[in-house]
Write a protein that binds this DNA or RNA. Structure first.
Lengths: 132, 132, 132, 132
DNA sequence: GTGGTCTAGACCACC
DNA sequence: GTGGTCTAGACCACG
C-alpha cells in the first residue's frame, strides 16, 4: 500500500489518511483481515505525529472499517470492502450532482456542460491509460 | 439582491457571502458602479457578525471585484463582470474535472459515470425549470 | 450542570465526560440549543487537559448529540434528547440482562436472585429519596 | 474443563481465563488438588500467547485460588472453592446493585425496572433450560 | 473569544 | 512489540 500526504492543502492529515485507506479497501489493495502498519511505523513513514495516525485509525474503527486486535495490531474489518465501495459511490454521486446543479443554476447551457464533461472524461481516461 | 447563508455547512460564512456576490455580479444582478449595502446593514440583515461581512468585502476588494469609494461606500468594480464570469467558468471546470478524475481513477467505467451525469443534468434542469 | 470526574477508575476521562453529558441531556438538565461550556473553560474546571474535553465534545458530535456552532461554541443538537434517552434504556437493559444471565448460568436460583434484586431496589429508592 | 475466549470483547484475555477458572472451581468442575493444564498446553489449545496464560495463573496464585506444586504443575488450592463461591456472590451483588442504582438514579420507575428484570429472568432460565 | 488540528512526549495495559 | 489515553503547548480559521 502506498500512502502519500500533502500537508497544507486544507484537508486534515488524519482525514487524508482515512480517505486513502478507505480507497485502498474499496479497490481491494487492502483486504479484510490484513494487518495495517503499526501506528508508530506509519507515522514515521509519513513523517507525521503518531497521534495523527492514531486518530485516523481510531475513526476508521468507529466507522467499522478497521478493527483493533489487542496487542497484535489493527486490521481491516470483515464487511469493510462493501461498505467502502458504496460509500465512495454515494460520495461521488453527491459531488457530481452538486457541480452540475451549480453549473445549471449559474446559467450554463446543458450542451456546453456536456462538452466540458466529455473533455474531462477523455482526459481522465487518457491519464489512467498512461499510468496503467 | 438576495443573499442567504447557511451556517455550519462547512463553508465559512464570509466565503458564502463572497461567492454569492461574485455570482450576482457574473449574472448581472449587480452591475459595475452599483453600491452594496453597508457592512452593518448587511450584517444585520444576515444576522451575522459585522467582522464577517467586513472580511468578505475586504477580500473581494483584493480580488478587484469590489472597490471602496471614499465616504460613499463599496461598489462593484468596472471590469468585475468579465472577471467573475471567467472565474466561475474555470472554477466549475476544475471541480468537474476533479470529480471525473476521481471517479475514473477509482475504477468507475466511463459509461456508468455518463449515466450518473445525465441523471444529474436532468434533475438539475427540472429543478431550474420549476423555480423559473 | 455539574460534572465530576474520577481519574484512575478505569473509565477514560473523555468517556466519563461523554456519559455525564448524555445523561444530562437525557434527563433534561441540558436542553437542545443550549451552549455548553467552552473546551478551555470546562477543561480548567475539571482540572483536565483541553484535548481531553475536545475529544469528548468531538465524539459527541459524531454521535449527533452535540453540534459545533462556528466561532460561537458547542450546543446540544435538536433531536438529542430522544436519542440519549433511548440509548440509556437499551444500555441499561443490556447490563441488566447480562447480570441476570451470569447469575442464572452460575447456578443461582431465580428466587434468591429476586431477593437480591428487591433489596437493591429498596436501597436505591431509599438513597434517591434521601437525596431529593 | 471447557474454556472459551473471545478476543476483542473488551475484557482482557487473561481475565477471561481467570474468571472461567474461578467459575469452574466455584461450581466444582475443578476440585482442590486437581492439576490444571500446563501454560503451554492451555495456550496452544486457546490459540493464545503463553504469556497471557502465565499471567492468569500468576494472578490466580496471588488470589490463592491456584498453587504451584514444584515440578508437578499448578493445582487448585485447598480452600479455593469456598472463596470462589463467595467471590462470585459478592461480585454479582455489586453488579446488580450498580445497575439498579443507575436505573433508579436515571429516573426509571421501580415498576418498569421490575418488568425488565422479570423478562430477563424468564429469558435466562429458558436459555439455561435449553442448554441443559 | 470559539473550536479544530497537530506535534511532542509520556504512561498504561495487553500480547 | 502493539494500541489507547493523557498532558502540554502550539498554530490556524472563524466570528
Amino acid at each position: 500500500m502506498q500512502l502519500t500526504i500533502e500537508p497544507n492543502n486544507g484537508m486534515p492529515i488524519f482525514e487524508q489518511v482515512m480517505r486513502q485507506i478507505k480507497f485502498a479497501v474499496a479497490e481491494g489493495t487492502l483486504v479484510p483481515g490484513q494487518l495495517l502498519p503499526s501506528v508508530r511505523i506509519l507515522a514515521k513513514k509519513l513523517a507525521v505525529n503518531p497521534n495523527t495516525i492514531q486518530r485516523a485509525y481510531q475513526e476508521l474503527q468507529t466507522e467499522e472499517v478497521l478493527e483493533s486486535l489487542r496487542g497484535r495490531g489493527i486490521a481491516v474489518c470483515a464487511g469493510a470492502k462493501r461498505r467502502c465501495v458504496s460509500d465512495r459511490q454515494t460520495l461521488l454521486g453527491q459531488r457530481l450532482t452538486a457541480v452540475v446543479e451549480d453549473a445549471i443554476r449559474g446559467g450554463l447551457e446543458p450542451e456546453r456542460l456536456r462538452e466540458m464533461f466529455d473533455k474531462a472524461i477523455k482526459q481522465a481516461t487518457r491519464n489512467e491509460g498512461a499510468q496503467a
